[in-house]
Each structure stands twice: as C-alpha cells, then as structure tokens.
Design a binder for these strands. Structure first.
Lengths: 142, 142
DNA sequence: CAACAAAAAGCAACACTGTTGCAAAATTGT
DNA sequence: ACAATTTTGCAACAGTGTTGCTTTTTGTTG
C-alpha cells in the first residue's frame, strides 16, 4: 500500500492533474494530525517548491473541497484536510477547531459539532465558526 | 457633554498619558458600532498619524483591556471596545462575534454568550471563540 | 511657568505574507 | 510522440506588522 497511490487517487478523483507539488503537499496533510499553515508547508517541503506554487496549490485544494481553512486568533490562515462531506465549491465544515497554546498546533475536533446559537433579531448567520484555545490532548500528558 | 471628556477620562482611568493619537483612535472606536481593523483606523484618522503609532496604540489599548481583538476567517485582526468586564492583562470576552458578508463589518453581540462546549477527553480549553458569518441587522433591512 | 525626566510619536528600514503577470516547463489526451 | 492546455517558477509588487533610534510631547516638580 503506497502513499503515493492515495494522493494520486485523491487528485484524480478531484479532476486535478498530478504534479509533484500537489502530491507532496497533499501527502504532508495526510501524515499530519493537525492543521498546516502556508509557512509550515514551505518548511516541510524542504525548499523544493516556489512559494507561489504552494499558495496556488492551497487555493486549488480549497476550491476543490480537499482542504478547508481554519480561522485563528493570531493572524495566520491554517488549512486541514476535509473529512468527506465537502465538495467542490461548498464546504460543510461544522466541527470545532482547537488551537493548542503550548505546541501551537491546530486540530479539527471532527466529533464536536458546532452548537446552534440564537442570534438577536435581524442577524442571519450562514456559518458559525468555533475555535477553542487551550492545552491539547498530547500536551496534557504527564 | 463633550466627547473629548469621555476619551480623556477613559485614558486617565487606565493610567495612560493623554495624546492626540490615543484620543483620536479611542474616539473612532466610540463612534463606531462595529469593529475596526488597523487599516480602517489609518483611513479614518485621515493620514494624520504614523502607521507605527497606530499599531502601538492598539497594542497598548489591548494590554490595558480597553479594546479586544476579534478573530476572523480572512487574515486581518480587528479590534472592538471592551464592555466593562475587562481589566489590565486579562480579557473576559465571552460574547459572540458577527461578521457581515455584505457590509464586511464585524459586530460584538454582547448579549449572546458563547455556549459551553463539551470537548473530547484530554483537551482543556481556556477560551472559546465563536464567530458567526452572515448578513447583519442593518444589511437585512428592505 | 520653566525645566526636566519619562513616555510617546515619527521615521527608516526590515521581515513576512500574499498576489499578479508572464515566460518556461511539465502534464494530459490524442 | 506531439500539440494544447496546465502548472510552475521567477520577478515584481502591495499590505501588514515589527524593531531601533531620534525627535517631540507629556506629566511633574520646583
């Protein structure tokens, strides 16, 4: 069972041509439990790809519903793999995100659904993002 | 009733010296229902202050608990006035934020408290941020 | 109100993030 | 294997935020 196959299939499934950068970036997401920022990818890819290529690849993946963006308090966009229910052009990203203040990783808590929130009259929400901040499972161990 | 008095009192109360830029920036926050990003302030202040001064003033205000930062999906930090319960060094910012996709304003929904969220074992949250996205009260009017 | 120490503003320079246009290279379908 | 289309890499640029240093302003004290 080769990982290369997984990424290739994934790309084919989304009607994307198979390129070295797309495979590499997708692989990074697959072997990473948490989320990745553009900067992380640049480092982990090992100076192999142009910054612009990474930006464009991330954009493409978001559009295709392969990854989704995660809002954060500090000013950096992070990305994580979508788990199944996302399609091209529309994300169904209803889980809570967790940012660890110790290891600085961001995790998708796929099992924790964002709660319904009663808004004041006049406000109509199309999407609700919940970001929890604290100490993650791994950092909490003794 | 002069607005100048409000801002001066506010600054004095927080043991900050009274300067033109602090007064101006504080005033902008007071006459604005929503949140402001650094860029907004730069524009509204009318080219009068140095960019660096604005950054430093915002930093100072956050530290003193006068304003708080608001996370956003797009990559820009916004700030809004704290309503009372914040002190120097510690914010008690437990309300929901609303980003309007039409007018692009951000509002603090002070009456909507962030719900308690049950996290998986091992995760310990110190803070939970909720950002709702959609159409705001003002844009929803016919 | 003048003089002084402390604080803040302004300026220059820099680092980081993200975008755009265009030419060269790689990928796909035939 | 070839041609058309995509994607990449490069260069240049815009926006955001930071740091160090000098000048100006503020608050205080006599």
């Amino acid at each position: 069972m080769t990982r290369a196959h997984d990424t290739r299939d994934m790309l084919r499934k989304n009607k994307l041509s198979i390129t070295a950068s797309r495979e590499k970036i997708l692989q990074l997401f697959m072997e990473q439990p948490g989320a990745l920022a553009h900067g992380d990818i640049e480092k982990k890819a090992g100076e192999k790809f142009d910054r612009v290529t990474i930006y464009r690849t991330l954009q493409t993946f978001v559009e295709k519903g392969i990854i989704h963006t995660i809002p954060s308090a500090d000013n950096s966009v992070r990305y994580a793999l979508c788990k199944g229910e996302c399609e091209e052009g529309h994300h169904h990203d209803h889980h809570v995100h967790f940012v660890c203040t110790r290891c600085n990783n961001t995790y998708c808590l796929d099992d924790v659904v964002t709660p319904a929130i009663k808004l004041p009259g006049g406000y109509a929400a199309s999407q609700i993002e919940v970001v929890a901040e604290g100490i993650c499972k791994l950092c909490n161990k003794p």
